[in-house]
Amino acid sequence: MSSLSSSLTKRRSRFPVGLYASLLPPLVWMTLLYFVPIALLVSYSVWRLEAFDIVQEFTLKNFQTIVFSSAYRTVIVRTIGTALGVTLIDVAIALPLGYFITRYGGRYRPLLTILVILPLWSSYLVRVFAWKIILGYNGVLNTALLSLGVLQQPSQIFLYNQFSTTLTFVHIWLPFMILPVITAFERLPKDLIEASADLNAPPWTTFRRVMLPLVTPGILAGSINVFSLTMGDFITPSLVGSPSGIMLGNVISSQFGVSYNWPLGAAFSLVVMLIVFSGLAIVVRQGALENL
């Protein structure tokens, strides 16, 4: 192995052109189309809007606006709370499912995995809208509860609130949690579980002390997916959420749209980035970097 790698190293120094040919195009491409725009967004956040003109001078006015407004603070807390809640619920749903599919799936495992991905191929917008049909006043849920005799009158409590927003998020991001969890369970060495059982560990102990530490990287990878997707979404709150239940994504899209205050919108984007980066820092500290 060492002789192999040393001969490869020799070859590497002989052909440095290969490194530049493969590294530079994606690096330049992403710099020009992503890293520079992100840097520009950061500088927008410290500029200000004056009479519909963007003044390119350093100011922390936008961040003061965000921090000193209790309405904006509420939006930030609501967004983080919703994203955390959705992530935890998706973990709770995905763990037993991932365990079952990899342990008992047998030859149906690839099919069961495809069935998880398949909903992603129907329109995301229409799937969100479908929850409106399910939870609405004339919806599927009300119709079912009426015919079962649980309700006498259709109820309006199911739609346009925090419940419907959370439920819809849990549904649309669930595949992004299940897939990394399944992958993690698939890499679990079977003999470890057998060894644990042979040592008379009850299934729960085997799960908690043997399997859970090993699938944690997959859970964390899925969690950062779901958390980040929820943090930036504004479609779901605007379709099924309450008018007073807007999230950070709604604020950003309105600042870059109708409100036309790009510096403030950029400052809000920076807040979202900082929150997601804190989540990422936790994931990286847990050693799940390879899974990202």
């Binding site: 189309l33 992503y34 725009p37 967004l41 930036g232 899209s253 984007s269 990422l280 990202l292």
Partner: peptide, 11 residues
């Protein structure tokens, strides 16, 4: 890793 809205408004 970052939400799509960040990519969108930055670009």
């Amino acid at each position: 890793l970052l939400p799509g809205i960040v990519t969108g408004v930055a670009m």
